[in-house]
């Protein structure tokens, strides 16, 4: 089976299961969103899928072979992980950062080849950061930096992109910009997996939602079908109300029941 899939996987650290019995396949050419409250296992599953952590039980398979037996560099050519933005303290230029994405393709002292240059140029273009190429990366805004990190991922030419809350440090405009970019990449054939808190963004940008609750998958499927009042109430403990925008697309609004009197609902 091609693509990335996770089979009955669990991770136990210090006797506590962070995730357990997780099963799903990453849909090719689609945006899959991992949703769930803090501590529900979104980041853990992303790290399992990226091969950064090994499952205590179960397995992650990439193109039919267990990821744990694969050489890091081989895996790095096929899937790419963008962690939550931690900032970069050193003044590499954007061009240099994106060129680092070619690492898994290059021998230790191999110089930059024509195909490396093409991949980097394409990645800069796709992530819309070509005009920033010469700027030092530590002087960019949060949205720009996130796009640069995505460009670095694209330069690996990996077909699968894994991103841990790519919009968490961004304002509304930059957040939408990054999600639109990911949507476009999926339309162009990439498989994208993102951990995301914003359920409205999930409804709008994702093809598939995987809802996590206490380290287990509670439901998954098309976001509009999965994010029901019952599921949201059970997993997040909040009341969901579905409104409609003028174009007919749904908008979710949330309330904490006990706070109603405080905010005057």
């Amino acid at each position: 089976m091609s693509g990335l899939s996770i089979h009955n996987a669990g991770v136990r650290i210090d006797g506590r299961w962070l995730v357990q019995g997780v099963n799903f396949a990453v849909a090719p050419g689609a945006v899959t969103a991992l949703v769930g409250p803090n501590g529900s296992g979104k980041s853990t599953i992303l790290r399992l899928l990226a091969g950064l952590w090994e499952a205590t039980e179960g397995d992650v398979e990439l193109d039919g072979a267990p990821l744990r037996k694969m050489r890091r560099r081989d895996a790095a050519r096929r899937l790419s992980f963008v962690p939550q933005d931690t900032g970069i303290d050193f003044g590499f230029s954007v061009q240099e950062v994106v060129e680092m994405g070619r690492h898994p393709h290059r021998g230790r002292f191999e110089s930059f080849q024509e195909n490396d240059r093409q991949s980097v140029a394409r990645a800069l273009d796709q992530a819309d950061v070509a005009d920033l190429a010469a700027r030092p990366v530590n002087e960019l805004s949060g949205g720009e930096r996130q796009r640069v990190l995505i460009a670095r991922s694209l330069a690996t030419e990996a077909g699968i992109l894994l991103l841990d809350e790519p919009t968490s440090n961004l304002d509304i405009d930059h957040g939408l910009e990054v999600l639109t970019l990911l949507r476009r990449l999926a339309n162009e054939g990439k498989s994208v997996v993102i951990a995301l808190h914003d359920l409205n963004a999930v409804m709008r940008f994702a093809d598939c939602a995987v809802v996590l609750d206490g380290g287990r998958v509670s439901s998954r499927g098309v976001p509009t079908a999965v994010l029901t009042e019952e599921t949201v109430a059970a997993v997040f403990g909040v009341r969901l109300e579905r409104l409609q925008r003028q174009d007919g697309s749904p908008v979710l609004v949330f309330d904490r029941r006990e706070d109603d009197s405080v905010v005057g609902v």
Binding site: R72, R73, L79, P83, F90, H103
Partner: peptide, 20 residues
């Protein structure tokens, strides 16, 4: 040298790019 350059981007990033 190249591994150290990548390490500057963070451990998880460099690991996901194939650095041990």
């Amino acid at each position: 040298t190249r591994d150290l350059d990548l390490m500057l981007l963070g451990e998880e990033t460099s690991a996901s790019l194939g650095v041990n």
